[in-house]
Design a protein around this nucleic acid. Sequence first.
DNA 1: TTGATATCATTTGCATACGAATGAATTTGA
DNA 2: TCAAATTCATTCGTATGCAAATGATATCAA
Lengths: 158, 158
Amino acid sequence: MGRTAVSAEDVKLKLVEAEEPDEHDYRLQEQVGFILRKAHQRHVSIFAAHIADLTPPQFAALAKLHDVGETSQNQLGSLIAMDAATVKGVIDRLKARGLVELSKHEVDKRRLLVNLTAEGRNAVERLIPIARDITQETLAPLSAREAAIFMRLLAKLA
Amino acid sequence: MGRTAVSAEDVKLKLVEAEEPDEHDYRLQEQVGFILRKAHQRHVSIFAAHIADLTPPQFAALAKLHDVGETSQNQLGSLIAMDAATVKGVIDRLKARGLVELSKHEVDKRRLLVNLTAEGRNAVERLIPIARDITQETLAPLSAREAAIFMRLLAKLA
DNA sequence: TTGATATCATTTGCATACGAATGAATTTGA
DNA sequence: TCAAATTCATTCGTATGCAAATGATATCAA
């Protein structure tokens, strides 16, 4: 058989077939959201291996309180990227363990002030060096140069 | 006053003071875990804005089932980085909505096979283009070049 | 001043996420 | 072969994480 006429139909069919892999071929493992979730999971796991009795959000609350001192619950939440409902649970648990204490704002009666207790302060100061190790271990798969680039780009995303 | 004797005590004191900022100055906002958590939060929020009736883990389960076909619940879990307890909840909810169906493995009676229903398959195929948009929007703060670098480094971390 | 808005906190409901314990079924190895 | 170890799935308990509704208080504006 020699040359055969190529109809518009054939061309269309060919194009559709060529598009098909692009259309259906969705690689979950390459999507940023999926990998972000896995990287976060890995970090939480490293954190737990070093600090067994606090979660990352709990430590974040303590570290931020250590940094800024007394604040309202909501204000603290916005400093550590937690909504009101979430921060309440975290603070409740820290309070139950004696690491923070709560008091009412004298002037604005809506506000609930949060403070580190002496024990909470000791805990943060003891844990900060360990937290640095956790950061290091999390970034360990990257060279120093790569880690610096990664942190810059990650910050742009967050 | 002219030159004063400098004791070993003074030098030590000076060193301790110099270390202090390094010791206590822990910048939560610069720690990889904290930013990773925020980046993940942002992604979930973008996802929810585009796909209101499924969560990222639910979509991950559907997309992976679409990719690999029938698998056991645990196997699916390992493919999408979910432990057995978590994947069970996700699959239960997808089943309740008619997007997946379950059956027993003929040979290995321990296994629970998971499959897309016709409705589930339609849903995934409809959503995949939207999921691509979500990936794009998540990476939008980065240039194409930066995004490529970021994905390479993120994959190393996860 | 007072009525509308906004802010702070709480509660409820739902959805991951994971450790630990348990039970059923399968595989391994002595 | 058969006891030990492993795998698959379920359940329980605890901890984020967020939307939505609610109540109390504060601020703003007409």
